[in-house]
Design a binder for these strands. Structure first.
Length: 278
DNA sequence: AACAATGTTCAGTC
DNA sequence: GGACTGAACATTGT
C-alpha cells in the first residue's frame, strides 16, 4: 500500500480538490470494498452533504461531512483506506485528473501504453453537483471505504510520535523491531518499505527484539523514521528511499557494498545490510 | 504456473 | 488475557 507518505498525498489531493461541493451521487456497489455497509447505505448517508475537511493518521484517511440543507449538525465521517494498491483520483469539473497516493505513478507512466487504466478498478465513486468526482481507484481491491470508523486502537502517527510515546510503544516485547514498527497499534503509518529504509538508516537489524533496544538506538530510530518519512513525502513516495532503490535480490548496500540479506520478518519480505545493521 | 506484492485482520498457539 | 505468528483476504504482475 501506499504507506504514510503516499496516503498523505492522497489526503492532500482530497483537501485540494474535493471539499465543499455537494454530493449528488455515490457508487458504493462494491460490497467488499464498502463492507460492512450494504449497497446504497453510504450513498444514502452522504447525498446532499459535502466533505468539509480531510484528515489522516498513519495510513487512515477520514473526511468530515456537512449537515444537509444548511443544518449545522454534521454528517457521518467518511473513512478511506488505500489498502495494498489503492489511490485517490479527484476529477475536477473540467474533467482534469488529480491523483494522490499513487505508489506506482512513475512505473505506470512508463507502462501506460501497455497497461491502460481499467475503469473497473474505480471501486468507489462520489459525484459532486459541479460534475467533479472523487474516486478510489484500486486494482487489487484491498482498499476500504466506510462510515464512522473507530480509531481508538490506532497508535500515534509516525510523524507526530513523541520520544516518550515512542519508547513506551515501540521498545517493548520480544517481537523483532521490524514487526513492532509495522504494527499500526504501536505506531501508525510505517509500512514494509519505510520500515526497511528506516532500519537501514538507523543501522539496526530488523531482527533485534524490540524491547532490547537501548536509549541511544531508540532515539536514533525515531529521528531517522521521522526524517525518512518527511523526505518521502517531499520526494513523492517511499520508493524514493536511498536503501529502497537498492532493495532487491542480489542487491548491495549503497553505503558499504555488502550483499543485502533477505528473509521474512514480521510476515513480510525484509531486506537489510547484515554488515552494518546489528 | 507458481510466487510475490508498499496492508489489514482473523484464527490459532504459547 | 496478552503477545506473537501465520494464513487468509482479492487481484495483478512477473
Amino acid at each position: 500500500m501506499p504507506e504514510l507518505p503516499e496516503v498523505e498525498s492522497a489526503r492532500a489531493a482530497i483537501e485540494a480538490g474535493a471539499l465543499h461541493r455537494e454530493i449528488i451521487d455515490v457508487d458504493d456497489a462494491d460490497t467488499y470494498v464498502c463492507r460492512p455497509h450494504r449497497p446504497g447505505e453510504i450513498r444514502a448517508a452522504l447525498v446532499g452533504r459535502s466533505l468539509t475537511a480531510a484528515y489522516r493518521q498513519g495510513k487512515s484517511i477520514w473526511c468530515e461531512t456537512s449537515g444537509v440543507d444548511g443544518s449545522t449538525t454534521p454528517g457521518p465521517e467518511l473513512a478511506v483506506h488505500l489498502g495494498m494498491s489503492g489511490h485517490i483520483v479527484v476529477v475536477s469539473p473540467a474533467g482534469d485528473l488529480v491523483e494522490g497516493g499513487d505508489w506506482m505513478a512513475s512505473r505506470r507512466r512508463r507502462e501506460a501504453a501497455r497497461h491502460p487504466k481499467n475503469p473497473a478498478w474505480n471501486r468507489v465513486s462520489i459525484t459532486f453537483d459541479d460534475g467533479g468526482e472523487l474516486r478510489l481507484f484500486d486494482p487489487r481491491r484491498l482498499g476500504r471505504v466506510r462510515l464512522d470508523v473507530n480509531r481508538e486502537a490506532m497508535g500515534p502517527d509516525a510523524q507526530q510520535v513523541t520520544p516518550a510515546q515512542f519508547r513506551a510503544r515501540v521498545a517493548r516485547g520480544t517481537a523483532p523491531v521490524k514487526a513492532r514498527l509495522l504494527d499500526q497499534k504501536s505506531i501508525a503509518g510505517v509500512g514494509n518499505l519505510l520500515a526497511d529504509e528506516t532500519l537501514w538508516q538507523a543501522r539496526i537489524s530488523p531482527r533485534r527484539p524490540a524491547g532490547g533496544l537501548d536509549d541511544d538506538e531508540l532515539a536514533r530510530l525515531r529521528r531517522v523514521l521521522r526524517a525518512a518519512t518527511r523526505r518521502a513525502i517531499a520526494k513523492g513516495g517511499v520508493h524514493t528511499g536511498e536503501f529502497i532503490k537498492h532493495r532487491r535480490r542480489d542487491g548491495h548496500c549503497p553505503r558499504c557494498g555488502a550483499e543485502v540479506a533477505r528473509d521474512t520478518i514480521g510476515g513480510r519480505t525484509t531486506y537489510w545490510c547484515p554488515q552494518e545493521q546489528q
